[in-house]
Nucleic acid binder design. Structure first.
Lengths: 207, 207
DNA sequence: CATATACGGAACTATCGAGTTCCGGATACC
DNA sequence: GGTATCCGGAACTCGATAGTTCCGTATATG
């Protein structure tokens, strides 16, 4: 479970103490996974893309399955820091504030990775758990915080089904990208908030 | 594009005029597809499950890709007949009336097939189109009719975004099954209608 | 400079599955 | 009964890929 984002420093050491190529390899694995899916991905592709040898990959991971598992798990990193979630004072403000172009791009990549492994999820509980933790849970966590805040604020009725509300956004995005093949843009996300999530949360539309 | 459901008569002819084993083979293909995904599915599996020989399969379809394409396309059959859609007088009534145990089962099977091919969809426009037509469009069509009716009735504001409303239900179901791995039951579908779809449609909750 | 370590890359094996071919058998039609 | 037709099944080819092994090289350390 190495952190891909930490391509920090990158001293290109000659003699490396550990397996310093891990981040590049994991990142390459995610790249290939998102483009070709689990079965379409070959270790050679990953190695080549990471400018590494196949042997280097197998020195660290004993099988393709483990590499993928690790690659998926490490997507958990780079998530939003829960501490600096903006509190804009309104539920809509909070939700809209979460929409940022880079996070949309990151989200699409995650979805493509998800698309590449969905058919495996039903057959590999471990992969299912990793995907759950790395791709599904982080989003839900952020949403949960917003809705709890809104309830405390009195903006939203306390008996609302928070879990269902948390799911609406991700579900619409996933369906749109994976099933309909439509790209996600800011307008789509905003309309999801205004036309679906807020009404479901019992918040009246603003004029 | 043969119809799987039409296992009618099934005279088990000796000398067959045409390729009479098509339905069984297509059905077996869908079965295997839903269990193992596109890459996990082998022609041998399909043939064996259909009690057929691999040669029989290739006599009719020139490649695995074409078999899958045809199998997906033929799922369009067995859809709800648009003429006998119940008009219960209310949007909620119409939506709830669509929930039937067999249609839930059928829907789950379709979703599993979808899961088996999502990673291919991004790379095969033909498969994407077939999936769109057979799995996505039929549901949206039914919903569209309900919402249009509700608008005519004055139950729902005319400026509502019908396309978005049509997507909510399928999106929640797909996300729940494929991403969260939760089975779909009647209560879940009802709560989707009452807590999400109707509020988004501007219908007040009933006490 | 000498050495140990990690790497890139290439060559290798073994397996598996797509697609092909062939044949014996069952049966509708003459 | 004879025959043409379709089928099931087995045996085959061939390409691709998971996983392994080996070697030359670069470099940090002593």
């Amino acid at each position: 479970m190495t952190d891909v984002q930490q391509t920090e420093a990158k001293p290109r050491l000659g003699r490396k103490r550990d397996h310093t190529r891990d981040p590049e390899i994991l990142d390459a694995a995610l790249e290939v996974l998102s483009e070709s899916g689990y079965d379409g991905m070959t270790i050679d592709m990953v190695a080549t893309r990471a400018k590494a040898g196949k042997a280097t990959v197998y020195r660290r991971w004993s099988s393709k399955a483990e590499l993928v598992l690790d690659a998926v798990a490490c997507m958990k990193q780079g998530e939003i820091d829960l501490d600096d979630l903006p509190d804009t004072g309104t539920l809509r403000g909070d939700l809209v504030a979460m929409i940022r172009t880079p996070s949309i791009r990151d989200g699409e990549r995650k979805l493509k990775v998800m698309a590449g492994i969905v058919s495996m999820i039903a057959r590999s509980p471990e992969l299912a758990a990793a995907a759950q933790e790395a791709l599904v849970e982080p989003r839900a966590t952020v949403n949960r915080i917003f809705f709890r805040r809104a309830i405390e604020r009195g903006e939203v009725p306390a008996d609302i089904d928070v879990e269902k509300l948390c799911i609406i956004g991700p579900a619409l995005v996933a369906y749109s990208v994976l099933m309909l093949g439509r790209p996600v843009d800011r307008d789509f996300l905003i309309s999801n908030i205004d036309q679906v999530i807020l009404p479901a949360a019992g918040v009246r539309a603003e004029p």
